[in-house]
Design a protein around this nucleic acid. Structure first.
Lengths: 108, 108
DNA sequence: TATACATTTCGTAAGTTTACGAACAAATAA
DNA sequence: TTATTTGTTCGTAAACTTACGAAATGTATA
């Protein structure tokens, strides 16, 4: 029973994990559509986005694995929503990151 | 002379571009070190980070291409800094993204 | 001129991502 | 029961990422 120790802090790893989920314009679109609640079902998203259904499922899985969304399966339909808790966490971490000590920044 | 029209807005593409630059813990570390100004030279970063010099150069190039940092080459040394303008742009875009219409969010 | 130093570029290997269509699954309708 | 609808999973190809060491670069110094 060993615990793998990383060379990076938990925060650093979390930030990069969330950033990775945002690192694709299809996924940004998905999150915008969900956040605006103009859509919730896979099919609604599919109608708006220029990718095949199978590709969309892959992107949804990436977002789900990152914790930014959650899905409720009621075959044959699947409804997706933002995961508000992690959404807030990601927001806080990223804002904190961008705020860090940059106020007094001066490159000599 | 043709202009390639994307299926995504400029903002969506910019957000994913910046997010992509943040999507790796080595690069998060680099940005933290630069933002904290504990280091500015490649060599200083190299001493702190668990990757080979050539790998570090690659990561620095990714950050530079994304516009988040800038480098000043004075061989044999190279000094890196945060690009404050784009740092602010990235911050603003991400804050805007995470704030979008999520306040009244309710999944029915 | 030759040597040393700090960093980048090159070559390459292993792994990951993104995309698609085909096949599959699960509930419902005909 | 068979067909239809809605999504997911599988197989696969092309492109991209991350990593390393070796070689190259460009200035300063011996």
């Amino acid at each position: 029973m060993t615990v793998k120790k990383s060379k990076f802090t938990d925060t650093q790893q979390l930030i990069s994990k969330f950033a990775n989920a945002l690192a694709n314009p299809v996924r940004i679109s998905i999150l915008e559509l969900l956040a605006n609640q103009s859509c919730c079902y896979h099919g609604d998203l599919s109608a708006e986005l220029p990718v095949a259904n199978s590709t969309l499922s892959q992107h949804l899985k990436v977002l789900k694995d990152a914790g930014l969304i959650q899905g409720e399966i009621n075959p044959p339909k699947t409804k997706y929503c933002i995961n508000l808790e992690n959404w807030g966490l990601a927001k806080g971490l990223l804002i904190g990151f961008f705020d860090s000590k940059i106020h007094s920044y001066k490159c000599d």
